[in-house]
Design a protein around this nucleic acid. Sequence first.
DNA 1: GTCGCTATCATACGCAGGTTTGGGCATACG
DNA 2: CGTATGCCCAAACCTGCGTATGATAGCGAC
Lengths: 215, 215
Amino acid sequence: MTETLTPGCVSVIDDDPHVRGSISSLLRSCGYEVRLYESTAAYLAADRPETRCCLVLDVRLSGESGLEFTEKLARLAYAVPVVLITGHGDIPMTVRGMRAGAVDFLPKPFDDDQLLGAVEAALLADLGRRAEFERSLQLQRQYDGLTPREKEVMALVVTGLMNKQVAARLDLSEITVKIHRGNVMRKMVAQSLADLVRMAEQLGVRDDSIHRYSI
Amino acid sequence: MTETLTPGCVSVIDDDPHVRGSISSLLRSCGYEVRLYESTAAYLAADRPETRCCLVLDVRLSGESGLEFTEKLARLAYAVPVVLITGHGDIPMTVRGMRAGAVDFLPKPFDDDQLLGAVEAALLADLGRRAEFERSLQLQRQYDGLTPREKEVMALVVTGLMNKQVAARLDLSEITVKIHRGNVMRKMVAQSLADLVRMAEQLGVRDDSIHRYSI
DNA sequence: GTCGCTATCATACGCAGGTTTGGGCATACG
DNA sequence: CGTATGCCCAAACCTGCGTATGATAGCGAC
């Protein structure tokens, strides 16, 4: 019965071998790739899956708690979607898990369909997140290729300053600003100022010394 | 003991008069303005507070459930932060509430401090949300003031097209595009193309007929 | 019908953006 | 020491943008 819509890799972290086994057999029977870990440390030590993936994580673990780990993951640039499961859950724990960005929070025992639904949602979430992450990584690589001066010029240009104003602010001649600006456009592979502005927005690049009138 | 950091108005919706009364006295003693309702319908019928505000909402209500109401609120442009409270909560209910965007989910009975903390967090959230809402409202008003043609020109301009290209796409002469473009800048109160691009981003204005190479 | 708004276009001027060519200076790396 | 890189500037040139000024035309409101 392989009716999986979005195939992918599910990493299961649970310190109970029996739980790992039953979840594993369920997911595998549906066509998912499954990797099993007994602790968050073991998971971190392993390689990341290349394909779409998610995490099924027990809240109560011997080492680091599943909640703490979820919160830690949320602080990363690229967070894997997490499905939390627990045998002894309560409402405050659920609140904390969901706040940390968990896709779902399932109290044991749960139906097969509940877990499958949560895993499916998590893999679907990873689809979009992964694409966005790749884009922002590429953008960051381009931005890192700029020289310090070019970054300064870019920050001022995307705030809407004219070359003349940029030159005054950086104590340069206008022609120099034009050259830097041209370099920025080429290195960032921006085909228009509008493009560059959107890239800067996504990178969080802006001039701190200016108080903007809008946004 | 008025040690409130962010004063504001708390609307309490609970069908139990006793609960309303006790929550009310607690919040009032801390300096909050409190309004009491016995149903979501009664809340909707009343005026919205002008100041910073939040909602304390019982999950189990006689009419519309608190969860449904929270989900409905979340679909609005400007959603009031909600603190959910319940006497008979479980984990799936908590998951649903938090997914709907609730700030907190408190099982009864709760400590005074728990409610106060949640209300404080909700009011703080409303601070930022309210400012952002005002800005986007203002922006929308300006955008609505554009003529259809001006909106078309704006959409193409912020994607990075030159006047010449915009003219070709709309089958106009370049000078006409320039005039429309000037009108757009003036009506949107944008001081630079960069400003206009950011405004368009926030408004969700973009040209659908073009496949963008980035973002 | 007249007023006002929208939309269209033309000519022309001034300013801003962008590139090329060419040059000078400092620093870092081998 | 030579080379590369980053940074700076200038003259010249082309293109694009923005704004007058002026003119025509359709359309809805009063």
